Structure formats: C-alpha cells, structure tokens
Amino acid sequence: MAVTDRVHTPPPTRQRPPRDRRVKRLAFSRKVSTWDVKLSPYLYISPFFLLFAVTGLFPLLYTAWVSLHEWNLIGGQGDFTGLENFRFVLVQPFFWNAVGNTFSIFLLSSVPQVVLAIAIAAVLDANLRARTFWRMGVLVPFVVAPVAVGLIFNNLFADQAGLFNELLTGVGLDPVRWHADSFASHIAIATMVNFRWMGYNALIFLAAMQAIPRDVYEAATIDGAGRLRQFLSVTVPMLRPTVIFVVITATIGGLQIFDEARVFDQGGLGGADRQWQTLTMYIWELGWGQRNFGRASAVAWLLFLIIVVSPLANFLPTRRIADQGGRR
C-alpha cells in the first residue's frame, strides 16, 4: 500500500497595500466623515430653502421687476417706468387710507389676542377635567375656513338685524352701524381675526407654560406666593421668548389681513367710503380691478417693507417689557 506524502500548501496571504496608500485611504475616510458632520445639517434643511427660493424669493424679486414697468393683464410687460409706480401710489389718498385701516385693525386684533391667549393658556394649564377636550376645542375656530367665518360674522354684525345689535337694543342701547362707521367696522373685523387665531396662539403659550420647570412653582409656593402672584412673577416673565415669537408672527399676519375684510360686504372694496379697506385689498383692487399690475406690485413691495420694519420696531419694546418683568 503506497503511502503518498501530503504536501501542506499554506493559504495565499493577502498582500497588504503599501503604508502610504493606507495612510491616504485613512485620511480620505476621515475627510469624508468631517464633511458629513459639517454638511449633513445643511442638506437636511436645504429642501426648505429650495422651496422658499421657488415660492418665496423668486416671486418677491419678480414683483420688484414688475413694479418698475407698465404692466397690465392683457398686454403684459410694457415700458420701463423706474420708480414712477411708487411715486404715483404714495400720493394717492386711498393708499394712506389703507395703511391707516390696516394698522387700526392690526392693533385691535393683535393686542387683545396675545393677552387673551395667555389667559386661556393659563386656564388650560390648570388641573381641569377633560383637558384634552378643551385643548382641542380652542383650536376648532382655526380650522374653519376664513371665508365661512367672515360670512357668519357679517350676519352677526349686520346693521339692521344682527345679533349684536339685537343684544344692544335689548339692554336699552342704540344699535351700532357696524358697516357704516369706520371704527366699528374695524372692531368687527378684528373680532373675526381674534376668533380664528386666539386658540392657535393659546396652544403655543400652553406648550411654553408646560416647559417651565415645576420646581420653580414649588419654590414660589413655599415662599408664600399665590396663584395670581405665581402667574405674574413666574409664568409671564418665563414666557418672554414665546411672547416675542407670537408678537412677531401676529404682526406679520395682521398686516396682511385680507379674507375677513374682503367678505365683510358684498362689494369687496372695504365699504362705500373704503372705511375698512386694507393694503392687501388695495393691491387686489389695483391688480384685478384696474388691471394695473405695475402699481399693484409697487404697493406689494411697500407692504413688504412695512412688514419688515414693523416687527423690528416692536421687538425692542416687547423684549424690554419682558426683561423688566423678569427682573421683578
């Protein structure tokens, strides 16, 4: 029986790359990791900026281009006019009337809205039964279509047979001409705005209140502070960032009010004497009423500048008031 000698063949060994190649590969891997850490946050937020560039920045720049030309619905772009559209708009009494109406409605809606939203949030933050039901309930007016809200309140504020005038005459007061009187119409439109947005802002304040540490309230209770004192000295000062955010967003939204004022009458021009015509309604009149998109774009850019300046103007007083409340 032949015995064959088995020759053991060692397995092939993997050739290691040269040291300089391994060093380059390791350096490249570290560089890719560094790029991932630095660039990935920007990639995550890039969809918003791309969408904003398409739907926000481009229309803004295009509106500026239209405002410098004669532009109508049928003929399109006309001659270059420079700042002529702006000069024409700034000397129109209708423009300044719309500016005054816009700020009047904005102040009548935003100031009570923020104050009442904080009060509602404080009530919702308490130990209530069916808290989820009440918290969802305050958001119901926000999901109602603004046109539906405008039509309903238009009937409630009717000059002849409205519910509010019926209540006033029931207690011996004279009825209010909600559509004829300028200030009364501003109150009616501001009521619509408050009805829609108060619950939304209340939920924002509620979320901020729930983020306040509870041990702060426990310390205030040990010091002898009551519920009202805790609300004024603890809750309100610690809501400073949220108050600033809500004030800025309310300013931006309040200066662009259109739906509620537009459906408050049948004509859509802001009353017989334009007593509640806002800037957005004036833009609509110039663009779709007079078919002059150059002048309408000029008013739109003036409104944009007002919206940019107004939040900056009320940011410092709001922050100072909040700081003083925090120090107290």
Rank of each mutant, 00 (worst) to 15 (best):
V91E: 05
A64N: 07
V66W: 02
S67V: 14
V66I: 15
T63M: 12
G78W: 06
Y62I: 03
G75S: 12
E70F: 03
N72P: 00
L60R: 07
Q77T: 08
F88L: 10
L90G: 01
F58A: 12
F52Y: 13
F48S: 11
G56Q: 11
R87C: 00
G82S: 10
L51P: 02
E70S: 13
N85M: 06
F49T: 09
A64K: 09
R87W: 02
T55E: 02
P59D: 07
L57T: 12
N72W: 08
D79H: 07
W71N: 08
W65P: 01
G76M: 11
E84H: 12
G78S: 08
N72G: 01
A53E: 04
I74D: 00
Q92S: 11
W71E: 06
P59G: 08
F48M: 15
E84Q: 15
L68F: 08
L50Y: 12
F49N: 08
F49M: 09
A53V: 10
L51D: 01
F52C: 06
F49R: 11
A53Q: 07
I74Q: 04
D79F: 01
V54N: 05
I74N: 01
V54A: 13
V91M: 05
F49E: 04
L51G: 12
T63F: 00
Q92P: 01
P59Q: 10
V54Q: 05
L61N: 05
G75Y: 06
Q92I: 01
F80D: 00
L60T: 15
F48T: 15
W65K: 10
G75I: 03
F58V: 15
P47C: 12
G76N: 06
V91L: 05
V91I: 09
N85C: 09
L90N: 01
L61T: 10
P47V: 12
L60V: 14
Q92T: 10
F48E: 08
L73E: 02
Y62M: 06
L57W: 09
V66H: 04
V89L: 11
L90E: 01
L73S: 05
F48H: 12
A53S: 15
W65Y: 14
F49G: 08
W71Q: 06
R87E: 00
V91K: 08
L83Y: 02
E70D: 12
F48V: 15
R87H: 03
V89M: 09
L57N: 04
G56R: 14
Y62L: 07
P59L: 11
I74G: 00
Y62C: 03
L50F: 15
F88N: 10
E70Y: 04
L90D: 01
